[in-house]
Simulated scan of single mutants.
Amino acid sequence: MTPELQHSPLEAAHQALGARLVPFAGWYMPVQYTSILAEHHAVRSQAGIFDISHMGQFIVSGPGCAAWLNRLLTNNIDKLALGQGQYTLMLNERGGVIDDLIAYRSGETEFFLVVNASMIEEDFFWLASHQDPDVILRNESELWAGMAVQGPRASAIFAAACPGEPLPPRNGYATTAAAAIVCRTGYTGEDGFEFFCPAAEAIAAWDGFIAAGASPCGLGARDTLRLEMGYPLNGNDLSPERSPIEAGLGFFVDLTKPDFIGRDVLLSQKSAGPAVKLCAIQYTDKGAPPRAHYPVLATDGTLLGELASGVLSPSLMTGIAMAYLPTAFSQLGTPLQIDVRGRQFPAIVVKKPFYKAK
């Protein structure tokens, strides 16, 4: 039996704007309003707004919450000052990725976690199953609506829509007078912020940002934007079978911490070198759009793996993708072939990001 889809508190606004809604991560979400190409370029040149109400929000508090989170997450929570956030990962005992998330220090003994939509229940169960007695863990995902305003004009749009309110610095966290949460983060490579408010206030906030100049954008553009930056998507580029070292996310792993779940496996991988690496791959000529699961071949036709993610880049107008490849084939400039339904298209391993935001 197929689980019933969840509905965003912004769904009526999407329908009024003529969005095409599709199932995504257990939710009914807008994939596009006009076209993925137009929405992508709106974010790169001006500003777009995305519904991120499907993302999960956890509150972790208590006198021992920082030490507890440091045993469950790869990055070092102790480095966060009040009002700062960091990208981090939650691992299983094998060093595989359960989820990637952002943790913000919202109080001296309180943290605000934003997790992926498809992982809300699993993440909460994992955290609860390791919970210390002096730690309070709350899943507030159903209480909040979320929207992300991204693009060069994001700060001007915030100033117009929320006059007098603080826009925190990069990776920062702040609250408004009306108790909304503003995080200076995003998933596009552009400047921007994520805005969380009570679900009942969602449409008014959404309409306010659009009136200030943000163009509504769907999940299609969100995917092309994040892949141009080489940002991973959990479930595609990250999985319980792949570690942050293999995924090239070692920068977000603090191996100097004495103890966190998966640490010993990561230490071994870092010492010996991973057998595979998540590589950025770009077509060297025109070709059919690359998609997840398309085979990746060596120039002699040997199967090396399959694409984890792939799109036609609207900014570069060529195919870009990521795939786990044997280390011997992970060097920059390594020639490859992407098999698209029996046709091979030449590509090479390139450096991330594919696109550098201006």
Rank of each mutant, 00 (worst) to 15 (best):
P9G: 02
L10G: 11
E11K: 02
A13M: 10
A16T: 09
A16D: 08
L21M: 14
V22S: 10
F24L: 15
M29A: 06
T34F: 05
A38L: 09
H40M: 03
H41D: 11
V43E: 07
V43L: 02
V43I: 05
F50Y: 04
F50W: 01
M55D: 03
M55Q: 02
M55I: 07
G64T: 15
C65V: 09
A67Q: 11
L69T: 04
N75C: 09
N76C: 06
I77C: 00
I77L: 11
L80D: 10
L82F: 11
G85A: 10
Y87V: 08
T88A: 01
L89K: 00
E93R: 15
V97H: 00
I98T: 01
R105T: 00
R105P: 01
S106D: 07
E108Y: 01
T109P: 00
A117G: 13
E121W: 04
E121F: 11
E122F: 09
D123G: 13
W126Y: 13
A128E: 14
Q131L: 15
P133N: 04
I136H: 10
I136P: 00
L137I: 04
N139L: 02
S141F: 02
A145F: 12
G146K: 05
M147Y: 10
Q150F: 12
G151H: 07
A154M: 11
A159W: 00
L167P: 07
N171D: 15
T175I: 14
T175W: 05
T176F: 09
T176V: 12
A178D: 11
A178E: 12
A178I: 03
A179K: 11
I181H: 14
R184Q: 02
R184F: 06
Y187W: 10
Y187R: 04
E190T: 01
F193L: 12
A202L: 06
G213N: 03
A214C: 05
A221Y: 01
D223L: 08
T224V: 07
E241A: 13
S243F: 05
S243W: 03
S243I: 04
S243H: 01
E246N: 08
G248T: 08
F251C: 13
V253Y: 05
V253R: 08
L255P: 08
F260Q: 03
G262T: 08
D264W: 02
L267F: 02
L267P: 00
K270Q: 15
K270V: 04
A280N: 07
Q282K: 06
Q282W: 08
Y283M: 04
K286D: 14
A288D: 11
P290R: 09
P290I: 11
R291T: 14
A292L: 12
P295L: 08
L304A: 05
L307C: 12
S309N: 07
S309Q: 06
P314W: 00
M317F: 13
M322F: 06
T327M: 14
L336D: 12
Q337Y: 12
Q337T: 13
D339C: 15
R341I: 13
R343C: 13
P346W: 01
V349K: 06
A357D: 05
